[in-house]
Design a protein around this nucleic acid. Sequence first.
RNA 1: GGCCCUAUCGACUAGUGGUUAGGUCACCACCCUUUCAAGGUGGUCGGACGGGUUCGAAUCCCGUUAGGGUCACCA
Length: 515
Amino acid sequence: MTLPRVRFAPSPTGYLHVGGLRTALYNYLFAKKHGGTFVLRIEDTDQTRLVEGAVKNLIEVLEWAGLTPDESPELNGKGGGAFGPYVQSKRLEIYKRHCEILVKSGNAYHCFSTAEELEEVRKLQQKQGLQPKYNRKWLPESLGGGAPESEIKRRLDAGEPHAIRMKVPDNRIIKVEDIVRGTVEFASETIDDQVLMKSDGFPTYHLANVVDDHLMQITHVIRGEEWLSSTPKHVLLYEFFGAAAEPQDNWAPPLFAHLPLLLNPDRTKLSKRQGDVAVEDYRAKGYSKEALINFVALLGWNEGGGSEQEIFSMDELVEKFSLEHVGKSGAVFNIEKLDWVEQQHIKRSTDAVLAAKIKPMLLDALKNKSAELPVEVITGDLYLEQVAAQMKERVNFISEFITFSSYFFFEPETYEPEAVKKRWTPETNALLTEFGLQLEAVQPFAAAEIEAALKTFAESKGLKPAALVHPLRLSTTGTSFGPSLYHLMEIIGKDACMRRIKRAALRITADAVPS
RNA sequence: GGCCCUAUCGACUAGUGGUUAGGUCACCACCCUUUCAAGGUGGUCGGACGGGUUCGAAUCCCGUUAGGGUCACCA
C-alpha cells in the first residue's frame, strides 16, 4: 500500500471549532500512524466570507495543539509543499481548466439563471410540496434539456454572467464506500445539478475539493458527517474526470471516512449558543493541549479490544489510532470529563514539567503584586517543583497553581471568615504566640521536625494537634484547605511562617472571634 | 417534507449470537486523613419500542419512534 496522504480542509472562519480540531486530529493520527502525510488546505472559495487573519490563526492553533501539517500554505517563510498552492483562492486557473473538461465531455453545462430566479423557483416548489431542486432550465438540448444551443452560445458570446452546473445522470444508484459507515447508496434523482463554478469565477466546494484531492493525491478523505450527503456528487465528479482523462491519470476516488458529529448536551449539533466551541476558548480557559487532544480523541474513537485506558499521550494515540474503531453516533462534548482529563494530565506530569508551566504564569502575576519571599527564590526551579509536588493532586488547571496556592508566593491578606469562626478561639492567639517560640528553635525547619514540634507542644498543653493545625494553616495561608501543613511550612520557610503567624495574630483579634 | 446517518447507564464507551451487560466521568456511601484534594472499596443507574430469524439476540433482519445531518452561485 502506498503511504496515505490525508488532508484537513477547513474554511477560514476565524477560529478553529473543536469539531474541526477532532477532524484534524484523526487525520493527523491516521497519517502519522501509517507514516503518511498530513496536508492542510484552506477552502476559501466563498469570497463573501473572508475573515482577516483567519489562516494565520488556524495554523497557529493547529501548531499549538501539536497538529503541525506536513504540507500547508506558505506563511512567513514556513509551510509549503510539492502540491501547492494550498489555498484554493490561489488555484482558480486549475478549477477553471477542470471545469472546462466537464463541459466539453457533457457532464456540466452553463446556467444563466440568476440567484433571484432560482430563489423564486425554489419557493414555488416548496409551496407545492416538491423537492427544491434546480429545474434544469439551461440544460442544453444536446444533453436532453430544453435550452437551445444557439441561445446559450449567444449569451456566452455576449459575456453574460453564468454559473456552471454538473449534469447528474438519471436512473443511477451512486454508491459511496465509507470506512466508518459501510456502503451508502443514493439515487441520482435525489441529487441536484450542483453548481460547480460560480458566476464570480470561483469554484464551489464540491468541484474544488475533488480537483484538489486528486491533484494533491489524497488517499483518504476523513471529514465530518455533514459531508456524507454531498459525497455522491463528489463520487460522480471523480467518475466524470476519470472518463475524460488519459488512462495513466487515475481518478479513482479516495477512501472516505465520515466522522460522527460533536453534540451539545441537548444532543443538537455542537454550537456556539450553548457554550464554547472554539479551541481558542478552551486554550484561554487554561486547558492544556494534551488534555484537549486526549479528550477530543475519545469523542468518537476508542482503542477497542477491551482496553480500559482513558489517558493517552499524543504518541500513544498515534500508535493506537485506527479508523476501524471510530464510532458511528454523535458524541456529547462533556466538559466535566474534559476537566477530569485535564486533572489527570496534571497529576501525571513531573514536577519539573509543571514548574516550567507555572513559571511564566507566576512571572505574570508578579507584575501586579509583590512577592513576600525573594523573587529569585520563588521563581526558582527548586521552589516551583516543591509547590508542584504539593499541589498537583489538588488543582484542575495549571493556573490554579497560582490562584489556589498564592500563599506560596504572596502573603495572605485575608482569612477565610467561615474558617476563622470555626477554628479560632479566644485562646488561639496566645497559643500560637507560644508555639511560635518553639518553632523558632526547630532545626532543620522541615516537615518532619515541624510536625514533631507541633505534636509535642500540643501534648504538653493537653490539646489535640488539630487545635493548632487549623489556626496555623489559617494564619500561614489564609485558607482552610490545601496541602500538608508541615510541607507547606517547610516550603515557605521559617521566616515567612513566623511573620505570618505574628501578622495573623494582629489581624485576627480576639474580639473578632466569637467567645 | 425528500434523501441520508444514528440509537447500550445522565455523559463517553466496551461488546461482532451464549457475559451476573464491563470500564471511565458525574452522583452516593464507606475507608484513608490536620483541612482540601488525590487514592482505595462498594453502590445507584443502561441495550428506544414492536415484530421476526435462532435452542439462544444488545449483537442479525424488518418496521416504528426519536435524534441528527443534508437538501445554496456556504463550506
